Amino acid sequence: MASPAGRPRSPRARDVRWRGALAVLEEMRREPGVTRAAVARRLGLSTGSATEITARLRDLRLLAETPVAAAGRGRPTTALTPHPDGPLVIAVDLRQEDWRCAVAPLDGRPEVAAAGTHHSRDPARVAGTVGRAVRDLHRRHGDRVVGVSVAIAATVRHGRVVQSSVLGWDAVDLAALAPDPRLPLLIGNDATLAGLAEARRGVAAGAATVLHITVEVGVGGTLVVDGRPVDGAGGAGGEFGHLPFGDPGLRCPCGARGCWDLEVDGRAIARHLGDPPPADPRSYAERVLARAPADPAARAAVGAAARGLAGGIAGLVNALDPAVVTLGGLAESLRAAAEPEFGRTLAGGLMRFRRADPPAVVAAALGRDGPLHGAVVTALDHVLTEAGLAAWAAHRSPA
């Protein structure tokens, strides 16, 4: 559209019209099923403006409205939900032993649509298997799919996998997971994405600074500040498990010595029990945790791992000053199984001024689904922009 003087309208002028729409969609994303009246109050919109914006979003198949009765004596209003023909993102959770693919609309609620276990750790075979599942979902939903986001148990730098100690990979190209080269393919570390999800949608929602720690095979995590992970110059930050908090005599699969990873997971528990290194450290740790209440040797091994976990968390709290610490994966199970050891070690490792008012340490709310939720959050952050809405509208006639 040209300006009155005949000049093309600037991108800035074109994008202004999406700002109110984005604000409304963000409220729907933050609180699925929120009413139009509540959104208008939060955003300071007049009834007319809220009606006009939601009507335009409805015409573009971005949201749907369902009548609901207003509370008290107010006017009837509507609940805002994703449009049944609206945009979708595909999220992939690629773990040590298995994988899952989910589809999520604009409210960010993933629904798992395909899953499987790795019959081989060969990266080409894994990417081929998961890529076929993603392509099937893309064929099923067509041009409603606006992005693919992958959470993987690996170090990710500049959007590419550079190493995965747990999968035994070095640099791996996951381009096969993109069903269409025109779609964005976003790749992130699973622990980072789980922490992002807890800070945005989980137990730490609303906290300005969140430290997330998870134990699966090794330790992962992230620091989330104002809803964004602090992930370094190339995106590879947050590899807390490779801090030298452990025994320098032990060589980590990452290539370094003394990694914290080796002090807290199933490999550490096996060493304390005199068992050989387990093929699957996570399931081994779960079995030992289950028998620990009745087995003194298992209880002692779990206690040692819990002390290793708490000591490292204390160091990170001293360095990073979070408002909340969230524990995912086996981290919360270790704390619960050896609460006295964990609590004493954490308190003893804090700087003296922190002990009177330490940050809350809480169990993650999203559990093993955290990385999947985080992948959806990342994809929707990419899609719900002025440019993203304009691109969707450019290929849609009014509903």
Rank of each mutant, 00 (worst) to 15 (best):
G235W: 13
G235H: 13
A236C: 09
G237H: 03
F240D: 02
F240K: 03
G241E: 08
G241K: 02
P244K: 07
P244M: 06
P244F: 03
F245C: 00
F245Q: 05
F245Y: 15
D247R: 01
D247G: 07
D247W: 01
P248D: 12
L250V: 15
L250G: 00
C252K: 05
C252F: 04
P253F: 05
C254Q: 08
G255P: 00
A256S: 14
W260C: 01
W260A: 03
W260P: 02
D261E: 13
L262Q: 15
E263D: 11
V264A: 01
V264Q: 03
V264M: 02
G266H: 09
A268N: 00
I269H: 03
A270M: 09
L273V: 07
D275G: 02
D275A: 15
P277N: 02
A279V: 13
D280I: 07
R282L: 15
Y284N: 10
A285F: 08
A285Q: 09
R287D: 14
R287G: 11
R287Q: 15
R287C: 01
V288K: 12
V288F: 14
A290W: 03
A290Y: 05
D295I: 10
D295M: 05
P296L: 07
P296S: 10
A297R: 14
A297E: 15
A297V: 04
A297Y: 01
A297D: 15
A298T: 11
A298P: 07
A298V: 12
R299L: 13
A300N: 12
A300C: 03
A300L: 12
A301P: 00
V302T: 08
G303S: 15
A304N: 04
A305F: 05
A305S: 12
A305R: 09
A306H: 12
G308E: 11
L309M: 08
L309C: 09
L309Q: 08
A310E: 04
A310P: 02
G311W: 05
G312H: 04
